[in-house]
Nucleic acid binder design. Structure first.
Lengths: 194, 194
DNA sequence: CGCGGGTTTGATGATGCTCAAGCCCGGTGG
DNA sequence: CCACCGGGCTTGAGCATCATCAAACCCGCG
């Protein structure tokens, strides 16, 4: 249950076994079924969730009713509406399980307690956030510089598994293109590819 | 010199006056003139820079020779090629002064020392990074859901001052549109506006 | 077996890009 | 101090990419 989390933490900071043990008490393990919502847009986001198993997406719905996938979170990733979680404001995003998932939920009070009692976690989260920023900046640049096909190929390189786990239309949404365009691109790539 | 930095830190975490004093020793104040590069793409990014005065941009150049502005950093903002700074790898971005600027530079060793000696700064940076992520996610969603005109109007709302300080083509690049398109949009908005 | 959501395929169209020329203005040198 | 660059902004015409709208198809699930 906690192995993946511990492994993830150890990949960024050094923690003792005592700390490992202590860590566990702040988290609430929880399961959600495919299609279940972890968060409804407009609610306050109560959890910062570490994905132990399964696949999750966060997305927003614009004025025209179109969905926009903000993030996919598979095993080893964190997901939340961070703005809502931190400021306790209304969530801009919905969070939904794409597959049956197992997560470790951190409430805001639990997180604060953890950060106070285990200062090393402050560092862990800082590093986590920094890497996230690097990734997000690269995504912005990709969105601005690549064609639809190039964006798709890039995604295939970076998260090859995702393409098969998430519905096409959600992948398209993540890339900022329509499902129709993605379908056509896939056809072309398949033909070229061999 | 340090007032803006201290103010910024105090807006996110509580620090004592002793800590304030101690803080200063980790930073190297430096000035750059308009058009001067703080970082050349391909080099290792040596600094995490807090902007005290002036305006800076970070950008990348794609295969076709087109520039893409990743970030503008005015007074009170941090700028760096974070990937390069943290991992000591070749920078993907260039960083250039748009106006004459005054910055407080943090080297990696200095930052590490500071984080060890002033653990509260670990929290400060975590919070800073988290807010940055919220902003970046919103930018991605905006890029995916808005028209060129809407993106421009949104920028006007969020950073109204920027439009007058940065050259149009750089603003266009930040928005992911061409300078020609931005010019036409501005004309339309001006006509509609009154 | 049949329904229904997701994907594919097709036809059409709009947004924004490209290429090109002209214009405006600020900086530089005579 | 004025004239002349030259870069950046503007304007125009044509075009490409991708979105939209619509229908057919496929397949998994009830």
């Amino acid at each position: 249950m906690y192995e993946l989390l511990i492994e993830n933490i150890r990949s960024k900071v050094a923690i003792s076994e005592a700390e490992e043990e202590q860590l566990k008490k702040y988290f609430i393990p929880k399961k959600y079924r495919k299609r279940q919502y972890l968060l409804n847009g407009g609610d306050i986001c109560k959890y910062f969730s570490f994905v132990v198993d399964g696949l999750i997406r966060s997305f927003t719905v614009d004025d025209k009713g179109h969905e926009h996938v903000v993030q996919f979170a598979a095993e080893g990733w964190w997901v939340s509406d961070m703005g809502s979680f931190l400021e306790e404001t209304e969530a801009m995003y919905h969070i939904e399980a794409i597959e049956d998932v197992e997560v470790l939920n951190l409430t805001k009070p639990a997180m604060e307690e953890m950060l106070n009692e285990l200062p090393v976690m402050e560092r862990y989260f800082r590093i986590l956030m920094q890497k996230n920023i690097v990734t997000l900046q690269q995504r912005v640049v990709a969105d601005h510089s690549l064609t639809a096909e190039e964006k798709y190929l890039r995604l295939m390189e970076i998260y090859p598994k995702l393409i098969h786990r998430a519905p096409q239309q959600q992948v398209a949404s993540y890339l900022g293109i329509t499902p129709e365009t993605l379908s056509r691109i896939r056809k072309q790539v398949a033909e070229k590819g061999d």
